[in-house]
Nucleic acid binder design. Structure first.
Length: 112
DNA sequence: CCCGTGACGGGGG
DNA sequence: CCCCCCGCCACGG
């Protein structure tokens, strides 16, 4: 799957929809799972466009260090953090505490 | 058409 | 910790 594929965004959305409640994933892992490891930016772009759809848990996508780099794109000043905290994820200084415990890698749970 | 700008990530200094 | 460069590519000016 290449980002040139017109359905790249849709494939990203399919993966994001499968991130379990209370877990998070990174842009890079999603790109890697889709066979386009260099296209993490496009995953971010897909999230940017995802606000049109209401069935995509975009708050569960963070950067590779567990930082809430996308929070500016959510309403208000703290919606992304609040949504994650509602799912039992602790955040300190914009960073998910015990990130490795919550990280969900699609390659470990979804078919190739 | 070129160019700057990114919800990114890896590499190097 | 800081910085820069590169690959990636959609979008707007």
């Amino acid at each position: 799957m290449l980002p040139k594929d017109l359905n790249f965004f849709e494939h990203v959305y399919e993966v994001v929809r499968k991130i379990p409640y209370g877990r998070v994933c990174s842009y890079g892992l999603i790109a890697r799972y889709l066979g386009s490891p260099q296209s993490a930016r496009m995953v971010g772009w897909a999230m940017n466009a995802s606000h049109l759809k209401d069935d995509i848990p975009a708050h569960r996508v963070v950067n590779r260090l567990g930082l809430l780099t996308g929070k500016q794109h959510f309403e208000g000043t703290n919606l992304m953090q609040q949504l994650l905290e509602n799912e039992g994820i602790e955040i300190k200084e914009n960073q998910i505490v015990n990130f490795d415990k919550f990280l969900w890698d699609p390659s470990d749970h979804l078919p190739v």
